[in-house]
């Protein structure tokens, strides 16, 4: 008749201590990986949105003219040679025709700061960059009924400085679970027209 020996109390205690150490390590690893995944997700979303806004803003400014640019805190208005569809056109002498005004400004949409863009056609196309009338400022576009497009969400700052090159600075930020995520992009653009 065989007798099987069981575990002693010290052996059980050591086994429990080791198991709890391993489980604590695994739990920490799991929590860290969840936090890392969240950080990656939020920062990529901010980055994508910020870069998309920067790409469009850079293109519009590169096609513009410093004489036709007005910057204000949190916004800008500029002339553009593209029509409302997005096409460039020249007159019979090959001169580029200026077709519309573009305005970028920051405004909250459903409690989230966004970068908005509005366009307005010039009454008559011009063969030189339009000088912006005093009344055509960011406030005019803010209050106009012109439809807007949302370029970026969670955008906190838009800064435009310099004349040619024009320096652009966009800052996006978002707080998730008490953690602040911030993306800042900067670019210098030379206005070609």
């Amino acid at each position: 008749m065989s007798r099987r020996r069981g575990l002693t109390l010290p052996e059980m205690l050591v086994a429990c201590a080791l198991a709890s150490l391993v489980l604590t390590g695994l739990a920490t690893l799991f929590v860290q990986s969840v936090r890392y995944h969240r950080a990656l997700e939020v920062s990529l979303e901010l980055q994508q949105s910020n870069l998309a806004a920067m790409a469009l803003l850079s293109r519009d400014l590169s096609e513009g003219n410093p004489a036709s640019l007005r910057t204000e805190p949190g916004g800008l208005v500029m002339g553009s040679p593209r029509d409302l569809v997005g096409n460039l056109q020249a007159d019979s002498q090959g001169r580029l025709m200026w077709r519309k005004y573009i305005c970028y400004y920051l405004a909250p949409i459903n409690g989230v700061n966004c970068l908005l863009r509005k366009e307005q056609a010039l009454p008559v196309p011009l063969d030189t960059a339009p000088i912006l009338p005093d009344t055509l400022d960011v406030l005019f576009f803010r209050t106009s009924a012109t439809p807007y497009s949302v370029l970026a969400r969670n955008l906190e700052q838009l800064e435009i400085s310099g004349s040619n090159p024009v320096s652009i600075r966009l800052v996006s930020s978002r707080t998730v679970a008490n953690e602040l995520f911030r993306i800042e992009s900067r670019s210098d653009v030379v206005a070609k027209n």
């Binding site: 980055q47 870069l51 850079s58 953690e179 602040l180 995520f181 993306i183 992009s185 900067r186 670019s187």
Partner: peptide, 12 residues
């Protein structure tokens, strides 16, 4: 065309 963009990411 060409250009450059500086991207600063702040995480924790």
């Amino acid at each position: 065309t060409s250009g450059s963009i500086v991207l600063d990411s702040t995480i924790r």
